[in-house]
């Protein structure tokens, strides 16, 4: 009897379901697709597909207007013999390595500011300030700072007995000068990440550390830094991406000069593809692909770690 009743009710439920309109029956299954569609479509058209298009364009010779000519790997072999490419690549390495200094520097400032005195909130905001303004403005600020005669920096080097150094006009210093300008907002960013992290450090562990006589560096290294790991991870991600994305400052401060010595890959690509030097879209795309591959090395690492945390939590 019970089976008969159960099957009867099952049929009833089935009938009930059939009578429900298509939408009501399937909305749980269709809803995610519908919610995703607009955003995913935009992202696909403007971000995902262009990546593959660029890779494809890099095998062509193309001025952006006339017919595209397939030239296979020629753009890449040309890159291998292009001294400007190596200059840009080397500068990118410099950017990457020196930019990472933003992480310890940001941590130092965060530790310095992590106090409860009157007005400290204002100090924190003002220290963070450089991150809010655009890189174009940062570039102009530092162009003034370095400007011969009128700027502050040559005065400082002069007072130190080094003579008036015109940083942006000197091939030896120009990239370091631009990186210093880039570090300014980047340190601010890392600082705010660490301030938030320090805010959440467990007081019990710090007290326990103090009881164990951990002080200063030892405390920082063994007790504090392990708890700041999430902040360090994000600081690492944004700093590496920021270093490889550097374009604005180079464009504003030197336009790649003097004599192309301050170019980075992102800037060189733009110069080749879209500036008065000619519209070499294919060659530009090949430079972009190289930059993309370098970036992918890091992105894959970052995503890998994020997937692991995602699976765990």
């Amino acid at each position: 009897m019970s089976t008969a009743a159960a099957s009867a009710s099952a049929t009833a439920a089935n009938l009930e379901q059939r009578r429900m309109p298509f939408w009501k029956r399937n909305q749980r299954r269709l809803a995610p697709a519908l919610f995703l569609a607009p955003g995913a479509l935009m992202f696909l058209v403007y971000v995902i597909l262009p990546i593959f298009e660029s890779i494809w364009i890099s095998f062509y010779q193309w001025d952006g207007l006339s017919e595209m000519t397939w030239i296979g790997l020629s753009n890449y072999t040309e890159l291998l013999g292009d001294p400007a490419f190596y200059t840009s690549l080397w500068n990118n390495v410099l950017w990457l390595v020196l930019y990472l200094l933003a992480i310890p520097a940001g941590l130092m400032i965060a530790i310095f500011l992590n106090q409860n005195v009157i007005g400290i909130r204002v100090y924190k905001s003002l220290f963070f300030f450089p991150f809010v303004i655009s890189q174009v403005v940062v570039g102009l600020i530092f162009s003034w700072f370095y400007a011969p005669n009128i700027g502050l920096f040559p005065q400082i080097t002069d007072a130190l007995g080094l003579g008036k150094i015109a940083v942006l006009a000197d091939a030896r210093f120009v990239t370091y000068g631009i990186i210093a300008a880039g570090l300014w907002p980047q340190i601010a960013y890392c600082m705010i990440l660490y301030l938030t992290g320090l805010n959440n450090v467990s007081p019990e562990q710090v007290e326990a550390g103090r009881l164990d006589n951990a002080k200063g560096w030892r405390m920082l290294w063994y007790v504090i830094l392990p708890q700041l790991r999430p902040a360090t991870f994000i600081a690492m991600v944004v700093t590496v991406i920021g270093a490889l994305r550097s374009f604005d400052l180079v464009s504003i401060m030197t336009d790649g000069g003097p004599y192309g010595t301050s170019r980075v890959l992102s800037f060189y690509m733009y110069e080749q593809a879209l500036s008065e030097y000619g519209y070499r879209m294919g060659y530009g795309a090949a430079i972009a692909v190289v930059l993309f591959l370098i970036m992918m090395l890091f992105i894959t690492g970052f995503i890998w770690r994020m997937v692991i945390t995602e699976r765990e939590g």
């Binding site: 995703l36 995913a40 992202f43 403007y46 971000v47 995902i48 597909l49 262009p50 990546i51 298009e53 660029s54 364009i57 952006g64 991600v237 991406i241 490889l244 994305r245 374009f247 890959l265 992102s266 690509m269 733009y270 593809a273 879209l274 879209m281 530009g284 795309a285 430079i287 972009a288 692909v289 930059l291 993309f292 970036m295 992105i299 970052f302 995503i303 994020m306 997937v307």
Partner: peptide, 20 residues
């Protein structure tokens, strides 16, 4: 899908420039 959104967010602008 989630990680495609995340990864796309990190790519260099130059790889998008010509097609966009």
């Amino acid at each position: 899908v989630f990680f495609i959104f995340v990864a796309g967010n990190f790519v260099p602008f130059q790889i998008l420039m010509v097609p966009v």
